[in-house]
Design a protein around this nucleic acid. Structure first.
Lengths: 185, 185, 185, 185
DNA sequence: CATGAATGAGACTTCATTCAT
DNA sequence: AATGAATGAAGTCTCATTCAT
């Protein structure tokens, strides 16, 4: 497993480091050292650190997208799905020592010149937003109302993540979960 | 006005830069160049870049605290205060080109070793949380319920800031505002 | 005692620091901080760091000269004086955690441009050399022979100091003492 | 010859500078300028200035060790070897403008935190001490007595180096040489 | 006598990237 | 595909010294 090809090893290593310490706090040297690759091997696979960041965000998105798609198609009550969604956030925050959202964290240090990164962030966020709108639509058949409700839950979800990270406490997630479920009924 | 003393010039310059580009993206060199000071003058006033960051966050906190205290003591309906609070957030986001919350953004790149910074973030966030709980308490006399409502609005506020920044759009603030007011009634 | 005048406080503080860490390892800031003086007060009393170094070496010399003069004039056998001289060196090395000779240590980092410092070193060393020659002359009445013997003991003394410092062990002093006394008889 | 690889060029350049001016008086900038390398190239090869110092001391030790081993195994009278040993010191002092022992000079500015450097100094000094003890053992078959004699000559050697450096004169070496040979017979 | 702000030069170290092999 | 050496620019921080008050 440690002997995956270099490209994957780099992506995995960088992912862990970017996530834990933040994109701007992790250097190429640290990545290649931990991934046990040579410097030039890195640039063979990724044209730049920024490109690696994009690859990482894309990778995370892919995996999280799958889980949302599954959840969306599961045969349980929509309200239950919202509960599960926040439960997943809760265990994610606790397991990651409250590191928060990789996308928001990366966005916090990305200027407007980082077009690729900003695009990844936007599309990931829109994807979650869409997911929540869809769950709401499974509950309310009024598209308009479902969208509004979804957006509200989206904002709650984001605030829960952000403040749980800032305060290193889990209550924001619990508060958001309760609020979301109340809005839902 | 441009000829304030060096310490203030540094703080102001650094504040603008930290806010716009993120703490980790701004170097001492850039700060002292824009503040028109010598490097050693900087270190005469601030023992480290991290200390400057703390001074900046403290400064921002001080000014924002004043505005919240004023708002809290104003003689208008609590629901109105919530509206104003989100209106201020809206214009702040728009005026700052959606740069978002200085505290959350700084927290995104601060490891657990940055004790001073993390403390500033925590206390600022708790201060806003307390403010919102107090406004709610002016509306509902049940302390328990007021606290829960305040915390929910706090989460909405944070999510609005974060996602407005991520998407460079204002709708999250508007959604949060509407949701908060609806929870309020 | 802590409230001696600034000039003396600076000299004493710098002396301790220069001795313990070496002239080049100690900065003006550290000195004035520990001496509780302002920076400009320092430059009022000493025109430069180098001048302070000279004052320190001169001060040390003065005090050590007194003890040698006393010893020279004491009414004991010359061989006994040599023994006492090395005994003093021994306790000095042990008490100072084997920091060695302030003069040699300073000379190790002083280029030929530091005229004042180099002069201090030279005259201090010549003073010790003269002292040893005189003690020998008290023992042998042949001036020529006394000088040679004195110089040999001087070299033993220096080697003892240097290697005791290098090895953080006391045996070089003991070896030198025994050798000196043997040469003496 | 000027176009050796960067690592060697750095080591050689730094060696010359450290020797001539003292470890603490030489900066990385001066080294890389004279070695015609980039700063980052330096840190590719040596993790720190201190590590470079260790490499330098180790290099010097290696070369001096060879010459001592050769001398020890030469087929001449032991007393002759002592004479040669001091002759070498004499020409070294004269050729180097009385810069003295790289190890003692470095030790004069190395705090107890410089473990690697202090180790190099100790082992170099012990190596010379052992050499002198062995030469003496070739002369006296009594191990005990040979050790004591060797140690005395070691102290003379060190004192000669130190004071020749301090006074910028060669007589301490000559005095030590004569004393050593006299002890020897 | 004393002070604290100001400074140019330089300290050591790391950055993301490229090149020859 | 992989490697290690090389790099210019930039990173944070400290140096001894001066000046206005």
């Amino acid at each position: 497993m440690r002997k995956a090809n270099a490209k994957d090893r780099i992506l995995q290593t960088a992912g862990e480091l970017f996530f834990r310490h933040g994109y701007s706090e992790v250097g190429i040297n640290e990545i290649i050292a931990k991934a046990e690759t040579a410097k030039a091997s890195f640039y063979q696979h990724y044209p730049s650190k920024e490109a690696l960041c994009e690859a990482w965000l894309s990778d995370v998105h892919g995996r999280s997208e799958i889980s949302r798609t599954e959840l969306l198609e599961t045969e349980v009550a929509p309200s239950k799905k919202i509960g599960i969604f926040f439960d997943q956030l809760k265990s994610f925050m606790e397991q990651s020592e409250f590191r928060g959202c990789p996308y928001s964290n990366t966005g916090a240090v990305s200027g407007s010149e980082c077009v690729g990164i900003i695009d990844q962030i936007r599309s990931h966020k829109e994807s979650i937003r869409t997911f929540l709108r869809e769950v709401c639509f499974q509950h309310i058949s009024d598209r308009e109302k479902a969208n509004i409700l979804g957006d509200r839950i989206f904002v709650l979800y984001s605030g829960a993540t952000t403040e749980s990270q800032n305060l290193k406490e889990i209550w924001p997630v619990e508060i958001a979960r309760a609020a979301a479920l109340e809005l839902f009924s």
